[in-house]
Design a binder for these strands. Structure first.
Lengths: 249, 249
DNA sequence: CGAACTTCTGCGTTTTTGTGCAGGAATTTC
DNA sequence: GAAATTCCTGCACAAAAACGCAGAAGTTCG
């Protein structure tokens, strides 16, 4: 078994069960504990997992992580949210992924807006629920605990049944060459389905994540209609995207 | 169980109930009191909880004492929750409705329990999500904002696809003659589907709601396998139900 | 082709960490 | 004020991590 392959397996296990024991891993893939430990060390250095005595945990465990960068990029995300809500008008069917940027958008929805929001993200749904005038459709299936979103074939099938006017994707990584990429296999499947089910695809991303790449590909740049960051539309950092035919706001 | 995992559990419990007893924690997660005490010490050093003699308190508990009414019925619901979780064992498929009693049950689930929980209630799902070992299946469809639960034909169709070992119904009204009744048409449809999809139906109800009736009928007494209230099982108020063949706990 | 080099992996050994236990001190409670 | 908890300290044992080393496998480069 190759190193990368092994690490992918470990990552998958962590994302699935929220925790993993080094002892069980080393019997699983039949390598020494040292190897596992080194793998966990690397994954931890890359910020993929949280290493603890005896194994590793998924990020969903330490909520400290959330609050720390939460305040920091909050302002940037508010700017993005403002730009994003401008695209929504009455009567629209809106498909959204999860992620903190999407949450921020949900909070910025004008109260008189009448639209239908469809999502499998629990935190997003919570926000939509408090809105007086929007209709909320929840995509059901198994819940992935660390991404707090429903994943699985049922969820994908349901998404494929809709044809939304617009789709907002919270983005982990976007790059001109590699397009949108992510690190959770199941979430990627979901995002792909959402893109296919929408007339227009809008990608929300803080500048920090622009020009970064993650292991798993969601879609190419050509499938994105619009990219929203906290930067002004004519920022030089975004020029490659404009050149590639993506609207930038 | 890993140290961080344990501390996350403790923290969750503290934030949930605003207090926690070291004695109950150590039976919960099956470690010595010393370990618990050391964990509380660490969490206290990090400022996550306030350590007191016999356990720990949440930070928010400091000055604002919550409304007495909330705590009052809260205690009754805790008793019900305790009785209810006793019915769940490893590997079970559990179907639950929404309601505050169900939430209380969700919060009382022992952390080592491994089971699959299926629900369309957003608040309930939120609780299940924090549990380290249970699998969560979310029933999707349109969200009813006042009951915070998914309703509609899709949701009902999905529920009919499962055959759960046990079904817990938070109850608005129960009566020997009229059975379970409720006041929301769509929620009633959902509950009916849940009853049909379960081998065993358990009805959770505080004594206050026993012998009351609401406009819409969910099911008759004969379809209920068990009734759980905060009263002792041999309370005279519950005699009619025992006579009707309902197990009472 | 093959020598020098890097990377990966497993094996001891040493260090650190986590946990439980026993006692005595401190506290709550009645 | 006495009994019962609960807390703290030191200690012992076990589990896991870190470290250095060495062999194997793969790469680079002349």
């Amino acid at each position: 078994m190759l190193k990368k392959e092994r690490q992918a397996y470990i990552l998958h296990q962590v994302n699935l069960h929220n925790k993993v024991l080094s002892s069980s891993l080393c019997t699983d893939i039949n390598v020494s504990e040292d190897t596992i430990r080194r793998d966990l060390q690397e994954l931890s250095d890359e910020g993929k997992v949280i290493k603890v005595h005896g194994g590793a945990l998924s990020h969903s465990f330490n909520q400290v992580h959330f609050s720390s960068n939460g305040v920091y990029s909050q302002n940037q995300k508010k700017i993005i949210a403002q730009k994003a809500v401008g695209l929504i008008s009455n009567g629209m069917f809106v498909l959204t992924s999860g992620g903190t940027t999407i949450i921020e958008m949900a909070r910025s929805l004008p109260p008189q807006l009448r639209a239908t929001f469809i999502s499998g993200s629990i935190p997003a749904i919570l926000e939509y629920m408090y809105h007086p005038n929007i209709e909320v459709i929840l995509i059901g299936d198994r819940i992935s605990k660390n991404s707090k979103i429903t994943v699985g074939s049922e969820a994908i099938a349901k998404i494929k049944q809709v044809k939304a006017d617009i789709c907002f994707l919270g983005t982990n990584a976007i790059d001109v060459e590699h397009g949108i990429t992510d690190n959770d296999w199941e979430v990627v499947q979901l995002k792909r389905a959402m893109i296919e089910s929408s007339k227009m695809v809008v990608c929300l991303s803080i500048a920090e994540k622009v020009n970064s790449v993650q292991p798993i590909r969601v879609c190419g740049i050509d499938e994105i209609d619009m990219l929203i960051t906290e930067l002004p539309a004519d920022d030089s950092m975004l020029k490659p995207y404009r050149d590639a035919g993506v609207k930038v706001a």
